[in-house]
């Protein structure tokens, strides 16, 4: 596997709370990795470590074999947070231009991405007037600006109606087709299954399973990613119960 991203024993503690416990994960270039796990499993923390938002207590993240210490090396990432936060009093265009220019992209690139997500007509509206779905699309447009090599999407399917979900899946497929690597954390298995090439399951900060979708299905004797996930989660829960009893 030609890994472009590697998480090397990445651990994070918040006081006595363990958020990540030495996650070891390699992401193949050009793949779509679905990062699955319940709330509080450490998915957003793992993304935070990748994007320089969170300092790991231990371990490091490598991009093309080199540790990502310099902020400039993160310019290859496009990021859509779970809750997109922008400047509410500014317009869609103002917000977009600010973030696009910070990454060195021209206004034309922003316009292209706004058209792509269907927000070009709303570019003069203040962000505070946008619906949740529109805000999500604006966040996606910002993440897509400049054709990033890696797209990091944290719960991108939350709160989208079927039409928007379909549109988002189409855009993600286009990104995959141009060669981008996608990391997507989600609870919406039905939305990610048609897209993902690989999956990793995080449970309580530990990597419980990883591999290509075919491998995971075959390994656990299930025919869907959702069934694989529930099987692994059940096994984990029963193991915990046994530990408590013991």
């Amino acid at each position: 596997m030609n890994a472009c991203l590697e998480f090397n024993q990445v651990a994070k503690r918040y006081g006595s709370v363990r958020a990540l416990a030495g996650v070891e994960l390699a992401v193949a270039a050009g793949s779509i990795l679905a990062l699955l796990g319940p709330n509080g499993a450490g998915k957003s923390t793992l993304f935070g470590c990748l994007l320089g938002l969170i300092r790991p207590s231990r371990g490091e993240v490598l991009w093309q074999g080199q540790p990502i210490r310099d902020a400039d090396r993160r310019a290859v990432f496009g990021y859509l947070p779970e809750r997109i936060a922008l400047y509410p009093h500014r317009t869609v265009r103002d917000n977009g231009l600010f973030f696009a220019r910070l990454k060195g992209h021209p206004p034309a690139e922003l316009e292209r991405q706004l058209k792509r997500v269907g927000l070009y007509a709303a570019q003069d509206r203040p962000v505070r007037q946008l619906s949740k779905g529109m805000l999500q699309r604006l966040g996606l447009a910002l993440a897509l600006c400049g054709q990033p090599q890696v797209l990091v999407l944290d719960e991108p399917f939350n709160g989208l109606d079927p039409a928007l979900l379909d549109g988002l899946q189409g855009i993600l497929q286009e990104e995959h087709a141009r060669g981008a690597t996608l990391l997507i954390s989600t609870h919406t298995m039905s939305a990610i299954e048609p897209l993902a090439t690989h999956a990793a399951i995080l449970l309580e900060g530990r990597l419980a399973a990883r591999g290509s979708l075919g491998e995971l299905r075959a390994q656990h004797g299930e025919d869907s990613l959702e069934a694989v996930y529930h099987r692994i989660a059940r096994r984990q829960r029963s193991r915990e119960r046994e530990e408590v009893i013991a």
Partner: peptide, 17 residues
């Protein structure tokens, strides 16, 4: 508080800048 700092930093702008 508004969480816009995370988006700026994630885009590759150093915290010192």
């Amino acid at each position: 508080e508004e969480r816009t700092l995370a988006l700026i930093v994630a885009g590759g702008t150093s915290r010192a800048r």
